[in-house]
């Protein structure tokens, strides 16, 4: 997938400024940056929910030039605080992921139900299948929205802060689901604000600041003090994880 010079501005203020990156196929790319860097807006542009300038190429097709429904068969998007449908169960909500497949006026087919069931199990939400969405905790809802996106059977999955409001265990569980997906060839781009979570789980990272790409590449190249310090305005020390050798970052406020 190649994000080709994506830009978006509102009321003359540039929010996303010519972002041109190529998240590797079948891998997790972390989208990092301070608050207001344009992470959410970039994801919404790629999802075609916002309309700006630029293109998103996937195997020679511009996803943004596709019809909405066709795009939704290839690309799924989980927003940060997804809507909570009243009077709908978890299973019904996950089934909504099948909306772009099949006829608009047709009912759900057995194939749709099979996909939704697979998504429910894969995302680890099957225990709540018959509960009403309104009775779930924030973390549980997040998981159901992930399952709904999986039911879309996407080749590209965009996640906006998928680990927000989650406890440590739930964060790792969610990232384990993502790891299974990337192993199956799905390209995942996730906005994350926890740099260490990105360091521990992403193959590739894109660092944004003021809507621009400051650095993009493998974790070891981007998550270095000289790259992070000017963006976040903090002092940064990189350690090595004793078990897997991945970087562990420690921050403090004293500027160097």
């Amino acid at each position: 997938m190649h994000l080709d010079r994506l830009s978006w501005s509102v009321d003359g203020r540039v929010i996303v400024d010519g972002v041109d990156v190529t998240p590797p196929t079948g891998a997790l790319t972390g989208l990092l940056g301070p608050n207001g860097a344009g992470k959410s807006s970039l994801l919404r542009l790629v999802a075609g929910v916002l309309h700006g300038a630029g293109a998103v190429h996937l195997d020679g097709t511009d996803l943004l030039a596709l019809r909405r429904r066709e795009r939704a068969r290839v690309l799924a998007f989980v927003e940060q605080d997804g809507g909570v449908p009243e009077s709908m169960t978890v299973a019904e909500t996950v089934l909504l992921g099948r909306t772009p497949h099949g006829g608009l006026l047709a009912g759900m087919s057995d194939d749709d139900r099979d996909h939704a069931e697979w998504a429910l199990v894969t995302a680890g939400a099957e225990a709540w299948r018959d509960r009403m969405m309104t009775t779930l905790s924030g973390g549980e809802r997040q998981r159901v929205h992930l399952a709904r996106a999986l039911a879309q059977d996407p080749r590209v999955l965009l996640l906006d802060e998928p680990t927000n409001h989650l406890d440590v265990r739930a964060q790792l569980d969610t990232l384990a689901v993502v790891a299974d997906l990337t192993a199956a060839g799905v390209t995942v781009v996730a906005a994350l604000h926890d740099v260490n979570l990105a360091a521990a789980s992403c193959e590739h990272v894109v660092l944004l600041d003021h809507g621009r790409v400051v650095a993009a590449g493998p974790v070891s190249e981007v998550l270095r003090p000289e790259v992070l310090e000017p963006v976040y305005g903090v002092r940064c020390t990189v350690l090595e994880h004793p078990r897997d050798g991945r970087p562990v970052l420690v921050f403090d406020r004293t500027p160097r």
Binding site: E86, T99, L105, G107, Q152
Partner: peptide, 23 residues
């Protein structure tokens, strides 16, 4: 009643409905 599927998607909110292919 035939538009039940798009109507269901509306329950998720505009952003999610749009990402599910609903204009």
């Amino acid at each position: 009643a035939l538009a039940s599927r798009p109507l269901d998607a509306f329950a998720l909110g505009d952003t999610a409905a749009s990402a599910l292919g609903i204009p």
